[in-house]
Design a protein around this nucleic acid. Structure first.
Lengths: 211, 211
DNA sequence: GTCTATAGTTGGATAGAC
DNA sequence: GTCTATCCAACTATAGAC
């Protein structure tokens, strides 16, 4: 259920050679350090230490620091969208748009929870990336945003949200509100946070505490 | 009205010696570069270039890179709170809490507008700062958040927001939603964005477009 | 595959002329 | 006050032993 669970599926091949396992250990270490320190403040030596290797040894698995960070980003974004999509799909085809959104909100907040590293790392890194890296990941970012906008649009078309709603705008506000809880997704009862979020976007049919 | 207007008031003394003016030019240049590139990617040489000086000359005005950045942060945060507070105070003592919040939202979004540099720079930098710098600015950050929470609490006590509202939580979500518009505060009609924001926090008495 | 050791860069700090 | 020139620390990348 956690974002990290898809890790193996993403790793090319999925063999468990020693090299492949070390590679994953390095990626996990990188995600953790990047999440804690941010892009520039992360030294290869920090990552190596967490992974239990010497700094120079990283080069055997990743050509450069940027290549390693790229991999963390790619992994985090792909896993994030996959996690949300999985939660929504699990509901089956008969679920109403509002229920789908609720599931998506839960999944997104879960991805931001303290125990995960990849999604928080991605979120922290986006605004710190060199321009070219940032550009390379724009499409993936847009795909994520687009998925949410489609959820909202479907709700609007089902009459669960106002007909004149600007779904692009509300998507941005919604993601902004959710991401403001980075590192706190576990603080306080889960239900309260997601209830507040759903309330904010106008879905207050489920007994929202504010109405 | 813009955040930058308080600059002179903040500069110690307010004299207009040549040195003081150059100092301000450097600060403005720093805010602009920091806003565009972020913390670590900003080189002193970039700032110097924008300010029209040689890199070495910066040292005469600021002891170190960190001191310069500190000043930009201090300036940005102080001016940001001052701008919001001013907009609210201008309403006079008879304004209802809801109207005050509306004014605050306008002021906050205005601070994030494309033409300003300090507030966007601050916003981009907070998550990139070295731990000690970050710690030093926590109190100022809390003061800003606290001001907003007080606004929401007053509205709750006036019966304009639900009595069981968690104002701390909603403050976080509100700021998150607003800040997600960094660099876009001018995109589209101002009214639409702030209307959506006010709607989200449950203030929809003013003819919000979604109701 | 992983280690140690080193080469190469980058960029902030500093000194001293003008 | 501002410039040029230099120093120095930090960190990535690379080479070669084991």
């Amino acid at each position: 259920m956690s974002v990290n669970d898809v890790r193996v599926a993403i790793d090319a091949g999925g063999q468990s050679t020693k090299g492949a396992r070390t590679r994953l250990r390095i990626l996990d270490a990188a995600a953790r350090v990047l999440r804690e320190k941010g892009y520039a403040a992360t030294r290869l030596s920090d990552i190596a230490e967490v992974a239990g290797l010497q700094t120079g040894s990283l080069a055997f698995h990743f050509r450069s620091k940027n290549e390693l960070i790229d991999e963390v980003l790619r992994h985090g974004m792909t896993a994030g969208l996959a996690g949300v999509r999985r939660s929504v799909d699990r509901l089956g085809p008969d679920a109403t748009p509002a229920v789908r959104i609720e599931a998506a909100v839960h999944a997104h907040l879960d991805g931001l929870a303290a125990r995960n590293d990849y999604a928080p790392a991605v979120l922290r890194l986006v605004d710190q990336l060199p321009a070219d890296t940032r550009r390379r990941f724009r499409p993936t970012e847009r795909a994520y945003i687009g998925y949410w906008r489609d959820l909202l649009t479907a709700a609007r078309e089902a009459g669960e949200l106002p007909a004149d709603l600007d779904t692009a705008l509300l998507t941005r506000l919604l993601l902004g509100a959710m991401n403001a809880n980075l590192g706190r997704a576990d603080a306080g009862p889960r239900g309260r946070l997601s209830t507040a979020i759903l309330f904010m976007i106008g879905l207050r049919g489920n007994g929202a505490s504010q109405e």
